[in-house]
Amino acid sequence: MNGWDEFAAAALEGRPLPLEVIDIHGHIGDYGAFWAPGRDAREMVEVMDEVGVAVTAISANSAWSAEAKIGNDLVARAVRAYPGRFVGYAVANPNYPEDVDGELRRSFDELGFRMIKIHPSVHQCSLTDERYEKVFVFAARHNAPILTHTWDKDPLCSPEVAAEAARRHPGVTFLWGHSGGSDVRAAVELAVEFPNVYLELAASGVVDGRLEYMASRVPVGKIVFGSDFSFISLPQQVAKVAFARISPAAKRSILHHNAARIFAAAGIDAP
């Protein structure tokens, strides 16, 4: 079809992509800042089926408060309700350091989570702030990957600050959410220096050429698909990869293989 590969052809026709996509950056549930339909587990699974996403790693929008437990419990219910379709991220609020260890332990031991999500912008806490130390120590001890929000215009989680955190904690696998934000150049330049850093693709701006730029400067094995779904919608995020001017093999790595390796290292069953 017009020279498109199997991924683009599927997206053009609204068919599920022809492999089991792993989405490493998802959210579930209502959010105070803005409303959207389609954010509960059932609706998310319907959309995942339509697009071809086998599993989505999720944190709860309701975890971004002083009481992260509410969100972590919501995620656990979704994981239980749809076995194999969701993987849970544990969230702990570094502004309440007395709660961090306990909530992470509870999330891992009782809820079965194996990954951690942090958001320096929401928590107003720099990635190099000592309040995150407990999180990093816990992650290293449990071999748990950390998905962190990164944003080039935010000094709390700019690529430079994220790189410093990666340098200080070589035993922690960092997934740089949004690949550094609206301008990916700094994240791309820095990510190649750290074997413990991956670049994640979620962005509401589906900028043409961005993935091609990234894939030309970092090994494709360091790029993982993430969508921010259901914070934002899924089809456009999948389309970014499906229509990218990169090889089908590179698309398979980004959409599945790289995340599968991260899952396996963390002890998570991957499709």
Partner: peptide, 9 residues
């Protein structure tokens, strides 16, 4: 293709 996919899906 992102907007096309939004409609088609």
């Amino acid at each position: 293709g992102a907007a096309v996919a939004a409609v088609m899906y």
